[in-house]
Amino acid sequence: MATIQLGLDTFGDVTRGADGELLSDAETIRNVVDQAVLADEVGLYFFGVGEHHRPEFAVSSPEIVLAAAAARTRSIRLGTAVTVLSSDDPVRVYERFATLDAISNGRAEIILGRGSFIESFPLFGYDLRDYERLFDEKLDLFSQLMAEQPVTWQGTMRAPLEAADVFPKTANGLTAWVGVGGTPESVVRAARYGYGLMLAIIGGPAHRFRPFVDLYRRSLTTFDRAPLPIGVHSPGHVAETDQQAWDEAYPGFEAMNNTIGRERGWPPYSRMRFQHDVGPEGALYVGSPETVARKIAATVTTLGVERFDLKYSTGTLSHEHMMRSIELYGTEVAPRVRELLAS
């Protein structure tokens, strides 16, 4: 556990500038690339960019943003959080990430998911009634493409393939995960196809997800697969003190929760709810470097995972605050987590 991989995720949230006005999508995207560069400079393992198709998030084509980051970074691994495979074409997805892998000299990763937001389905002409079948079939095809050999495949949601090959070829294959929000069926599916498991823990205590970790490992054994990595994705923010981190992060969490909540029927977000969520029983990793490090170490120990990705962008939190959060996460949180786990 002392060799835990620590990464960052962002959805490219559109943020506010010093004047209080929302930045343009273009400036937000350029800031995301700068954030990836800083993450590389402070020695973090992974930088992930999510795919969305709605006004709160600027990034709809993560691979292009990641390619820009690849050209300006040296060591950090680059991937998605997540790629909505259900509303995309597996062949094009594979080719785009194989291209990113070439640009980054083998640092590309992909986290595949069904998507917790549904805007991409009508946008690209898919029926939400096919939500499960789309992902199942496309994951099956993507899994065959991973071998980088000619593929013959037939399903019901896209045209069949006959001895079809994909290009470019990668030097050493792609690293791929399946992002799971917390259903047993999704956990078993990830094991069946041989993908790493990335648990999106965005609510409640981490220990609630231990049964999914155990199910995944049992399923790998059932499918006669070697052990595969398990990771956690959770929101957070780091500042010099707990109070500073809470005060900086709360407006963004409130804005984002209330925007999504109006669509999904959630009650209005409150400071009381926020303070619960940043506590031991909540899923927000917000506080000083010591507070965040201790909470991450506790989660890693409880679940026995190999990776933790902090979703450091939330709502309208400013670029400057996010840059400081990344700096503290890499220079103070990461070494303290390893120290705690080693002891």
Rank of each mutant, 00 (worst) to 15 (best):
A2L: 03
I4T: 09
G12L: 04
D13I: 00
G17Q: 04
A18G: 11
G20V: 05
L22H: 15
L22R: 15
L23R: 14
L23Y: 09
D25Y: 13
D25H: 10
E27V: 02
T28F: 08
I29V: 15
V37I: 14
V37G: 04
V42R: 10
V42W: 09
G43W: 03
L44P: 01
Y45C: 03
H52K: 09
F57Y: 11
A58E: 06
A58Y: 03
V59R: 07
V65L: 03
L66S: 07
T73Y: 08
T73S: 13
G79M: 05
G79V: 05
A81T: 09
D88Y: 08
V93P: 01
T99L: 15
L100K: 10
A102P: 00
I103Q: 05
S104G: 09
N105Y: 02
A108I: 05
I110A: 15
I110M: 13
R114H: 04
I118Q: 07
I118F: 13
L123F: 08
Y126L: 05
L128F: 10
D130K: 13
L134P: 01
K138M: 06
L139H: 02
F142W: 04
L145V: 02
A147H: 13
L161D: 06
E162K: 13
A163P: 00
K169T: 05
K169Q: 13
T170G: 07
G173C: 10
G181Q: 09
G182H: 07
G182W: 04
S186H: 05
V187E: 02
V188C: 04
R189E: 09
Y193C: 00
Y195I: 03
G196E: 09
L197M: 14
L197V: 08
A200F: 06
G204A: 06
A206S: 10
R208K: 10
F209C: 01
R210K: 15
F212G: 00
D214I: 00
D214C: 02
R217N: 09
S219L: 03
T221L: 08
T222H: 12
F223S: 11
R225T: 03
R225A: 11
A226S: 14
G231H: 05
G236C: 09
G236F: 05
G236L: 08
E240R: 15
Q244V: 09
A245W: 06
W246M: 12
W246E: 15
A249R: 02
P251V: 11
P251D: 10
G252C: 10
F253K: 11
E254W: 08
M256Y: 10
M256W: 08
I260T: 08
R262Q: 13
R262Y: 00
E263V: 02
M272W: 01
V278H: 02
G279P: 05
G279F: 08
E281P: 00
E281Q: 14
G282R: 06
L284P: 00
Y285Q: 08
E290R: 14
R294K: 15
A298V: 01
A298Y: 07
A298K: 12
T299D: 14
T301S: 15
V305Q: 08
E306R: 13
L310H: 07
S313H: 11
G315K: 03
G315I: 04
T316A: 12
T316K: 13
T316L: 05
E320G: 00
M323W: 03
Y329I: 00
V333A: 07
A334Y: 01
P335V: 09
E339I: 00
L340H: 13
L341R: 08
